[in-house]
Write a protein that binds this DNA or RNA. Structure first.
Lengths: 351, 351
DNA sequence: GGCTACATTTGGATCGTTCTATATCCGGAC
DNA sequence: GTCCGGATATAGAACGATCCAAATGTAGCC
């Protein structure tokens, strides 16, 4: 695929500075890197000249020669999703503080685009990749794009297919099952018996885990889950609002719904409002993520806080730590989530 | 087999492919770039070998040799702000489609950090920079970090100080004054007479423009603006909630408030709720940005839609167009915003 | 003066590509 | 048999930095 490239004007290089100071390139290079080997006077002269000519270090050239990198690639599904935006902010914070630069890519939740994005990013030779995979992305294809050497940290979702033993990756996952378990138990404790699980794709990693957490909690409490009480939707507000009808039109409605995430819960609330139902009174519900809107919604949404910015920082730290040791076995990290109780998880009408 | 001293396998380069195929580096290079000069058979052989060895193109080396770039730097205040997150998503979309990669930096609204971030990004030799400047950033310092040649697009805010004639930049600004004018006129049309302007920093570019738009509209309608009706705050929810007291404690309260942006409006709504006041009944208000939460809040927030993702796309297109022509005069683009009427802008109690 | 020790400086070679100019092969025209 | 032109292929010098080994200068010591 042909790519367009922009022409550049001639820039000031080491050679220009060296010539102006009457020293060699090597000396200027040493000054740039703060080596103690250069004489005080020489250093001062060179530094003045660097300033005067407005020299800009060419890190790409240095990286080429030194066979190093100074960037990290970050690939997320959609920056428009506040969860990922916060995550990205956290990643960039730590990556930047470590003197690296973040190469951004977004997939729009398409495995095809993800493949193209990875292919493009990897050509820029990042030190490693933080990937929040698009739904349905396969391990084999990802490894194909990245090569076997690239340090890789998977966030939030697993890839489909096995990790080759030769090229393990690190993972950073939320404790989805336990989180949803907490929410479910909270609703049960408030007296609910007919509880549904609403939204998300059943086959995605978090979807599986969250459903599993829900079902396990219900089983522990010896409560039935009628088949109509498991409703799928895309993990966004719009599609959730659409899918709400399936739940709300049931002959025997649940008294509470554990939602896949906050966006879905907010979509359900929207749909309820349109029918004149009041969330938190006519139906209790919980979310997942604790996005800003959760606190703001009316009623406030009971949800699971995941601290996405801190997760971003953590992801960056994990990947940076891995850079030096590309061949050690992949490390799996699961972070707990915290139940934040607000008004949406009211007791059932009967109680 | 012990792995302890396993050498890190060198990356595959042109030379490896050339050697394996019995051709020269130049030929492989031509194949990579799809030149018609190579024989069909040779091309096929080389391509098979590229595949077989898992060759990854080193764009940094190519850019060095060709004196080109394949990246764009994007510097925003805070990705956690949905407005900028959407903007960034739009930028990356177009930048990626043009075969470039986005280098991300965020300033956390600090001119100091911005300086460091720009310094770090510019070493990676981006083709241009899209900058949404931190408050109080000065033209001279920014130009100092970027050098006089770097194509630059300023979004949303102006820099303090003059653009040097030698190095103009492009700007993409929202039509703040007109937008706020629309909101103000809308409230006046609904019957409000005592209207305040709430939130934002008076000295920031959008702050100045929005205040000016408000004052102009009030003047056109021959309405007074008592001095207490101009309240400042940081442009976020938290500080706005804090600053709300100043407005709500006034002896003669306004019946409506034009807010600096949605975050500020939501903060004001929050503060009202705590006092038992109902936004949209006890006080009408409007926002700016039309973030997702605006539609969701209760009551829905009347606001000005800025379509931040589309603005991001537009910014990227403007900058990409500029890459080829770095010396043409800077171009100023102002985009209109659209009034979205919801329930928060109710008529005053009297009417 | 010759020697070593230390501080400072430097000329290539090199990283992985691309560019320029030149080389080679081949078949057909003369 | 020579010459020519088109089609392919290639060697070697870039690009802007860093690394290495070696060179230079300076001082102290015998």
């Amino acid at each position: 695929m042909p790519l367009s490239h922009a022409p550049l004007r001639r820039k000031v290089t080491l050679i220009d500075i060296a010539a102006a100071c009457g020293v060699s390139r090597a000396t200027v290079s040493l000054v740039l890197r703060g080596s103690p080997l250069v004489n005080r006077d020489t250093r001062a002269r060179v530094q003045a000249e660097l300033q005067r000519q407005g020299y800009i270090y060419n890190r790409a050239a240095a990286n080429l020669r030194r066979r190093t990198t100074s960037s990290i690639a970050l690939v997320v599904n959609d920056l428009g999703n506040p969860f990922f935006a916060e995550f990205a902010a956290g990643v960039d914070e730590v990556v930047g503080a470590a003197g690296f630069v973040t190469l951004l890519g977004s997939t729009g939740e398409s495995a095809e685009r993800q493949q193209a994005v990875l292919g493009s990013l990897v050509e820029h030779n990042p030190g490693g990749v933080i990937l929040s995979p698009a739904e349905g992305s396969e391990a084999a294809r990802v490894m194909d794009a990245l090569g076997p050497q690239m340090p890789l940290l998977m966030f939030n979702r697993e890839l489909e297919g096995e990790a080759p033993a030769s090229a393990p990756w690190d993972t950073l996952m939320l404790d989805n099952a336990r989180g949803i378990g907490l929410a479910t138990e909270h609703l049960i404790a408030r007296g609910h018996r007919r509880i549904a699980f609403f939204g998300g794709h059943a086959r995605s990693t978090p979807g599986q885990q969250r459903r599993a957490g829900f079902l396990a909690a219900m089983k522990r409490a010896k409560l039935e889950v009628p088949s109509g009480f498991l409703v799928e939707s895309a993990p966004n507000r719009l599609d959730a609002a659409r899918a709400s009808a399936v739940l709300l039109d049931l002959r025997t409605r649940p008294t509470a719904a554990v939602c896949y995430n906050d966006a879905v819960a907010l979509g359900l609330m929207l749909a309820m409002g349109r029918r004149g139902m009041r969330p938190g009174r006519d139906l209790a519900l919980t979310g997942f993520d604790d996005i800003d809107e959760a606190a703001l919604a009316s009623p406030g949404l009971t949800t699971l806080a995941t601290a996405p910015r801190e997760r971003g920082r953590q992801a960056a730290r994990l990947l940076l730590a891995r850079l030096g040791h590309p061949h050690e076995p992949g490390q799996r990290t699961t972070v707990p989530v915290e139940l934040v109780i607000r008004e949406s998880s009211c007791p059932p009408p009967a109680a």
